[in-house]
Amino acid sequence: MQALRSKARELLATKTVQVIIGYASGGGGRARAVFVREAAKADALVFDDSCQQNLAVYFSKPEVRKLGKAALVATPAALRAILQLAAENQIAEGELLALAVGGDDVVPLATFAAIEAHVAARDGDWSAAEKEELQKYEAMGLEERRRFWEEQFSRCLKCYACRAACPLCYCTRCTVECNQPQWIPVPAHDLGNLEWNVMRAMHLAGRCVDCGDCGRACPVNIPLHLLNRRLIREVFTVFGSRSGRSAKGDNALSTFKPNDPEDFIQ
């Protein structure tokens, strides 16, 4: 934490960046995002296990962009988000400095290549608990799964916190907001909720960087990240690609191979 604070002070003092986007202590033992613009205030920065939010989401917020060049306190998921945003031409090289955190150390990563290398060196499989969580649902029968999700989605408020919290949901006008004709129903009734959640998952397929913020943001605790997880695995096992690993190249669903599997096609 001290390393982080002194690095932040240095970056601000030398005017290398204008703002450090990091974590500060928040309410109820939670951490919250903080935007430090003066070296003197760098002591507000913290980093511990409560710091889970993917701060890369703030790159798409105009008010934050206006603050100038930013250094971002980046969890592994945030680093992946940066790479994915770069691959989708949302961040240009040199527009930001990533401060990779983990343990007591802080590693400044100025280029996409450096971020790619950093991510690659620490890339791993899901934890046993994460795998188990997914398997728990897959082990259910089809009907049981259907009922599970019907109940979950019946609680959805359509507050779009999942969308707001997602660093990859950066569209200025979402499909749900296209209303001539109204494509996804606005009302938060059962059908509207199902269609919204299917659409959200589909539009993130091959792009989701697996930070889990959608599930964490949900005020009614729908495990939304599971949908994304399931598709991450599908994309990886079938197409062999994982998003958020490279600042270049196409997403799994905006490209193809002529010999992609098609055993399900008659």
């Binding site: 009907e143 799964r145 998952a201 949908l227 399931r230 598709l231 599908e234």
Partner: peptide
């Protein structure tokens, strides 16, 4: 491919 995976997961 992806849609089928999602449909199945949704039951």
């Amino acid at each position: 491919v992806v849609f089928r995976g999602l449909m199945d997961f949704l039951g």
